[in-house]
């Protein structure tokens, strides 16, 4: 019974954010409505649905439970939080390619009159393309990791509630932008912003600086993030152990996810090539007739 109470207390938000709650509930509701409206053939597979919901729940969990309290006071938990916000959560959400289902979930009038109009606005297109290209997207992705891990900025972000929120939101939004750009299931011809080759190059290229940042933290022989000593750690572990664990989390799981992303992209590239070859080699009459 006591264990149950502790678990329930753990799931209560440390700093309640109506924005996070409404966004998560809103996304789930849209997805559910979208699934009900979609025709059988258009419904995503079970694994895609699980990926979407898991990604969303993970993001909610690290932002709106006592996990957030631990993230503020243990460096390695903070690194786990950012692994979820910048990598794992957005990665799973992007992998599930939920756009069509989410759009279907909107009431028809809102979709055509508000959402699609907003999406076609030149300002929206311009802003989207400003960030979603082969130069800015990878720079922003790696730059944000580096920026928030600068000793002094990290110190300030952990002391200031508004700055802390800016940090976490910037990681989440950038994670979503980056992984949606990278894991687009379409080919360039079908409408993806970047081709598979460029995306594989970017996914592996952004891996290198993250390894360097992670290794730099892991092998540092002095305490880089004094704020955890000043404001106290929740668990009494050696500051350098905390820092090394944090460094390893920045380094290894993040790197693994980039490798997984590259493998997924290579697979999709090969499949799209095979489809193209089949289309060009088969006589068009039999292709139509066969169906």
């Amino acid at each position: 019974m006591e264990g149950l109470l502790t678990a329930v207390a753990f799931l209560a938000p440390w700093e309640f954010s109506p924005t996070v709650l409404l966004l998560c509930i809103g996304a789930l509701a849209l997805y559910w409505r979208g699934l009900r409206h979609a025709r059988m053939a258009e419904r995503p597979s079970l694994s895609r649905r699980i990926a979407f919901i898991t990604g969303l729940l993970l993001v909610y969990f690290v932002m709106q439970t006592r996990f957030d309290y631990l993230s503020q006071h243990m460096f390695f938990i903070h690194r786990l939080q950012h692994l979820v916000l910048h990598h794992l959560g957005p990665f799973l959400i992007a992998l599930s390619q939920p756009h069509a289902i989410l759009a279907d979930g909107l009431p028809a009038r809102v979709r055509t009159k508000v959402f699609e109009r907003f999406w076609r606005l030149p300002v929206t297109r311009f802003t989207y393309q400003l960030f979603q290209n082969a130069i800015v997207a990878p720079l922003l992705f790696v730059g944000l990791i580096w920026f928030w891990l600068t000793s002094r900025i990290h110190f300030n972000a952990m002391l200031s509630a508004p700055l802390y929120w800016v940090m976490n939101w910037s990681m989440l939004i950038d994670g979503l932008l980056f992984w949606f750009l990278m894991l687009d299931s379409r080919t360039r011809r079908e409408g993806a912003l970047l081709g598979f080759g460029v995306r594989i190059f970017l996914v592996l290229g952004t891996l290198v600086p993250q390894i360097l940042i992670g290794a730099h933290i892991t092998f540092a022989d002095r305490d880089l993030y004094d704020v955890y000593n000043v404001c106290a750690r929740v668990w009494d572990i050696d500051p350098l152990t905390d820092q090394q664990l944090g460094g390893l989390i920045t380094w290894i799981p993040a790197a693994m996810m980039h490798v997984i992303a590259a493998l997924i992209l290579i697979g999709r590239w090969a499949r799209s090539d095979r489809n193209k070859m089949e289309r060009t080699s088969a006589p068009s009459t039999s292709y139509v007739g066969g169906k």
């Binding site: 309290y69 503020q72 006071h73 952990m158 002391l159 200031s160 509630a161 802390y164 000593n229 000043v230 404001c231 106290a232 750690r233 929740v234 668990w235 009494d236």
Partner: peptide, 22 residues
Amino acid sequence: RVAYALGKPDARGNYEVTHSSA
């Protein structure tokens, strides 16, 4: 934004306390 935690009491009822030094 400071942490504090009370440890488990030992046989004599003493316990460790984690707190901020700021």
